[in-house]
Amino acid sequence: MQIPHEVTARPDTGLYNSKLGIWLFLASEVMLFGGLFSGYIFLRMGAEPGYWPHGLLNVPVGTMNTAVLIVSSVTVVMAWAALKMRQFLQYKMYMLITIICGIIFLGVKLSYEYPQKFDHFGAFIRKDSLSKYEAYLGNEFLKSKNLDPRVEISGHLLDAPKGSPYEAVAKKNAEHFKHMLHEEGIGGGHGDGHGAQVQVQTEATDDYVIQLDPANARPTDPANEAPSFLPKKQTMMTAVVKAADVENASMFVPRHSPYFAIYFTITGLHGLHVLGGVLVFIYFWGPGSKLYQRNPEHLANRVEVAGLFWHFVDLVWIFVFPLFYLL
């Protein structure tokens, strides 16, 4: 039995079957990511002032990944065009570039961007204790500028209260930190030139010691509010936060806040789409390319359909990038 219009278009619709199929599938994908992004909007609009973080993601890396995806979107079209012109070797080359771009994107996400977040720690301070940490939060200054308050102290955890799930991370970071001090020859107490104190561990058993992010180290620096392209350097300053003053503390993982919840959910699902696309491309580049011998037009159609999916994945990233990295 032969299904009609598998390769050639039906005259009255002008489409072959799988091209219609992928457009329908993409329509449902639009609704899926539409649902996810509406979650983003809902959560962000509902966030209390100060509870939606800014500037935590690495913009240069994200920009590079954006460029990588756009390049791959171009090369996948080139691969399709090469097939249409029956230039098999060129097809192989362009497809390979596309695959490599996809792998670079995933590699950067999984080996750099995600682990960097998992290392990071943030403690939301209870509302009635905010004034105790004014030196790290700068809320008086922010209030005078009519800006949202700062309610979180974030950075790398160097010590955690006894029995907290973060003890192991803190210990590892503290070791790493000592090592770094030794290598760079920075004496304790000098920090990064701002006269900050470096304190690796405290005697008390219920303190968080956090090596501060720049925004907490210099809370009244106007540069905190300006968008910055390059990520700011980690400071050598630490803060001691009493566990009793903490409303909620966690590594930068989904449970940290709705921001990271939606960040990991959307980028994770997007990453799965990239992975799916890459696997399909690898098939079309490798064993699937034998179809060229029998029916080059059919292979071209397949690449076109997979390419449409790839463009969609690219397009989703075009929304993800500003929403999470820039805004």
Binding site: G39, L43, V253, P254, P258, A261, F264, L269
Partner: peptide, 17 residues
């Protein structure tokens, strides 16, 4: 499906959608 994934995250990864 999006909502199901959100609730799944809430239950399995402790997020707060």
């Amino acid at each position: 499906e999006a909502a199901g994934i959100f609730q799944f995250m809430d239950r399995v990864f402790g997020s707060s959608f």
